[in-house]
């Protein structure tokens, strides 16, 4: 199986999960309404989503060159992290069983991708587009700060630092998943865990929108917790990375809500300026 086939499989599985989740959590009625008003909602959420797309594009490009740059300016912190937590991840792996490994491997790849994308669908389906904007800003903050950390810190994950204690369970269970993960990330980018920070971001947003999606909230929390544990169970991240990811998520959600409020207050002003500018261009 090549990278292309693997990507297609992930897209297929996540696509099915999205359809099912949309029907269950969002419901056919809201989906129909969304379709009717799709233009208006996209207009509202569009700009910030465009920024997110830009950040993701820059991110994928910078990650390619950042490894070299990071070797120049980055601080090596693997030993420090190891000094803080020792063989904690090895301890987690003592409960390893084939069933758990299969579960966490699937969580790490499929559930994480689903967890990232589903809220975008769910929040687009809301009349109130504020959660959508907050979530998108929070994603931007996660990726932006994460990238800066990856540049500033060179750290290898536990599987690459103490292979005698920690097994690379994801890759022993499912070797070819490394085709995908190595394409997305470098093995020196582990601090903080973006898997954790983005999943927790989604869970925190699910808490904020629990009135609109009461059933999504517990599911999101459970899935986010699974993703966070999976990164350690699979030997990819240190406990320290997960804590840092957690803090990054809290910061991103709080900051995103402030930024969104600030944006709302100055919305009229900004739109007026943009309008005038557009007029002048005409």
């Amino acid at each position: 199986m090549t990278l292309l086939e693997l990507s297609a499989r992930v897209l297929g599985v996540v696509g099915v999960m999205l359809v099912v989740a949309s029907l269950v959590f969002v419901g056919p009625r809201r989906l129909r309404e969304t379709r009717a008003d799709i233009r208006g909602r996209l207009r509202e959420a569009g700009p910030v989503v465009a920024v997110l797309a830009g950040v993701l594009a820059i991110n994928s490009f910078v990650r390619d060159v950042s490894t070299d740059l990071s070797q120049l300016v980055g601080v090596r912190i693997t030993s420090t992290i190891h000094a803080i937590e020792g063989a904690f991840v090895g301890q987690i792996q003592t409960v390893a069983s084939p069933v758990l490994t299969a579960y966490f491997s699937n969580v790490y790849v499929y559930a994480y991708a689903f967890l990232m994308i589903f809220p975008l669908v769910a929040y687009l389906a809301l009349d109130d587009q504020r959660p959508m904007r907050e979530l998108t800003v929070a994603y931007i903050l996660n990726y932006g700060i994460g990238l800066v950390c990856y540049l500033a810190f060179i750290a290898y994950g536990p599987r690459n630092f103490m292979p005698d204690v920690v097994e690379p369970l994801l890759y022993t269970h499912w070797p070819r998943s490394q085709l995908l993960t190595s394409e997305i990330n470098r093995n020196t980018n582990v601090f903080p865990s973006l898997h954790t920070s983005l999943s927790v971001t989604v869970a925190l947003m699910a808490y904020r929108t629990r009135d609109a999606y009461p059933y999504w909230f517990p599911v999101a929390v459970f899935a986010a917790a699974s993703v966070a544990v999976s990164t350690m169970y699979l030997g990819i991240h240190w406990g320290t990375d997960v804590i840092a990811g957690l803090l990054l998520a809290v910061f991103s959600v709080v900051a995103a809500s402030r930024i969104r409020q600030f944006g709302d207050q100055h919305d009229g002003f900004v739109r007026e300026r943009v309008g005038k500018f557009a007029d002048r261009l005409r």
Partner: peptide
Amino acid sequence: LPADADSYALRLARA
């Protein structure tokens, strides 16, 4: 080298 690049070197170094 990290374990990704060489399956033995890091284990040797650790021991």
